[in-house]
């Protein structure tokens, strides 16, 4: 009998402490999530270029407007290029740009879904048939970047690789 009394005393004490800690925990959790949210929002505003924006819709995915695959110079060291994804290649590729250039990629697909990811950067856009998405990115490092298709697109999906060559002062 005394053993069960002791155990219910233990239960009561544990329960009281638990309820106190519970309130603290919920408060801390909410605070933590709020701070995290503020942090992400700040980063997003700070690096707004990588946010995908919409650059157009078309009814027929295959009807890509010309000129396709050319780079247009839009500022001192700024360029715009339309990237078209097709089973199973990127056009244009390889793409040559000078170091320090800010490139706006207008990405779309002419057939199925593809994913336009540039390895080692934050550029990551879904290539949707019928919609053109756009992101900007500044290449501050010279070298070769791989374009990797990261949305399943059929048998040769793994081989749908492209290249961006950032040419800079060799120093």
């Amino acid at each position: 009998m005394s053993e069960s009394a002791a155990s219910s005393e233990f239960e009561d004490a544990f329960h009281k402490a638990a309820e106190r800690h519970e309130r603290v925990w919920v408060f801390v959790a909410v605070l933590m999530l709020t701070l995290l949210l503020a942090g992400t929002m700040f980063l997003v505003v700070y690096a707004y270029g990588v946010v995908v924006r919409t650059a157009g819709f078309r009814r027929d995915p295959a009807a890509i407007e010309a000129p396709e695959g050319s780079i247009a110079k839009t500022g001192p060291n700024a360029y715009t290029v339309t990237i078209v994804a097709r089973l199973w290649r990127w056009s244009p590729s390889p793409l040559r740009i000078p170091k320090g250039a800010t490139v706006t990629f207008r990405v779309t697909s002419a057939d199925v879904l593809h994913g336009f990811a540039i390895q080692g950067t934050t550029v990551n856009v879904t290539a949707v048939p019928g919609i053109t998405g756009s992101v900007s990115y500044t290449f501050n490092r010279s070298g070769t970047f791989n374009i990797v298709c990261n949305e399943y697109c059929g048998l040769e999906h793994q081989g749908m690789l492209g290249r961006i060559v950032v040419e800079g002062d060799p120093a």
Binding site: V26, A29, V30, L33, L36, L37, T40, M41, V44, V51, V52, R53, T54, A55, F57, V107, G115, N124, V125, T126, V128, I131, T132, G133, S134
Partner: peptide, 22 residues
Amino acid sequence: TDPGFSPIWRGILTALTLSVAL
């Protein structure tokens, strides 16, 4: 990472998504 809808909605979604951690 999809195009086609507004960035503002993306921000709201981020907020709601974090709340589901609660």
